[in-house]
Structure formats: structure tokens, C-alpha cells
Amino acid sequence: MKAQHVEEEIWNWFELTEADKERVLLHCAACETCKDLLEEVQHYASQIETLQRAEFTPGHQAQAVQKIMEAINHSDKQVDLNISFLSRWLLVPFQVAAMVLILFAGQELFSVEESKNNQLPKYSKASLLNTSALLKNNLNRKKERKISIRELIEKKLKK
């Protein structure tokens, strides 16, 4: 057995099982140091027992309980105050913000419904005419450019 392990077992003598106690006792029979340590532990245990027997009774329990109940009432009042503070300074603005959000959402829904009912065309006539005119212009320009480039190359080759 390792010395540290035995020492720990001796100090935890009262937590050992009967089988463990037998084993430690066998070891102590052959080891003077461990035997002395076991005696020291027994002495420690007797001192502890004296302290365990002693009860530290509170002097004025009724007064102490009364003080505790007063402290609880005070803490309850404090909690109530905190809640009223929260409701005054935080809950009311939150309620207003929530109402504004609800109104906004309602308005959005209403506008979507309205647009569905109206079924407006995607593009106006004017915009379509404009676009077609723009495309025609572009095509013309491209054609013009092609001719002009070809002419330019031919001219260069001739030169």
C-alpha cells in the first residue's frame, strides 16, 4: 500500500467500510507510524465529538424570527416598488411602441389588399412607347456604326 493512500484512509477512518478498516488495521499492526497516526485520529475524533454534542442555541429566537419577517416584508415592498417603476418607465413606452407597430402592420396589410383590388397594369403606355423608341434608336446606331467601320477599313485598305 502507498504511504499517502494509507494516510488518507486513516484520516478518513470513520468513512471506511468494515473491510477497509480491517485492511488498515492489518497494515497498522506492522507499521508504528501508521499506528500512531490512528491514535491521533481517534483523539481528534473525541474532540470533535465534544463539539458535536454542543448546540449553539440562538438567544432570542422569537425576536430573530420577527426581524426576519420584517426583512421579508421590506423586500416584498422593494420588489413592488421595482415593478411599479418598471411599469411606469419601461412598460408604458413599450406598450406605445407595440401599438404603433400594430397600426403600421395594419396599414401595410390594408394597402396590399387595396393594390390587389385595383389590379393596375405593370407598365404604362407611355413608358412602353419610350422603351420601344429607345430600342429602335439603339439598333439604328449599331447599324450606322457597322457601316461606318466597314467603310473606314475599306478606305484604309485602299490607301
Binding site: 448546540e55 449553539f56 442555541t57 440562538p58 429566537q61 430573530a64 424570527v65 419577517m69
Partner: peptide
């Protein structure tokens, strides 16, 4: 609170002993 007071009264010595020790 009356019930709580009863419990405090019953457990006070035990809790006090631990805190004192």
C-alpha cells in the same frame, strides 16, 4: 406568510447552528 413564519420558526435553530459553526 403565516405558514412561512411557522417554517422559519421550526428550522431556525438548525440553520443558525450551521451558520454559527
Amino acid at each position: 406568510k403565516q405558514a412561512f413564519r411557522y417554517l422559519v420558526d421550526a428550522y431556525y435553530p438548525f440553520v443558525f447552528n450551521l451558520a454559527f459553526r
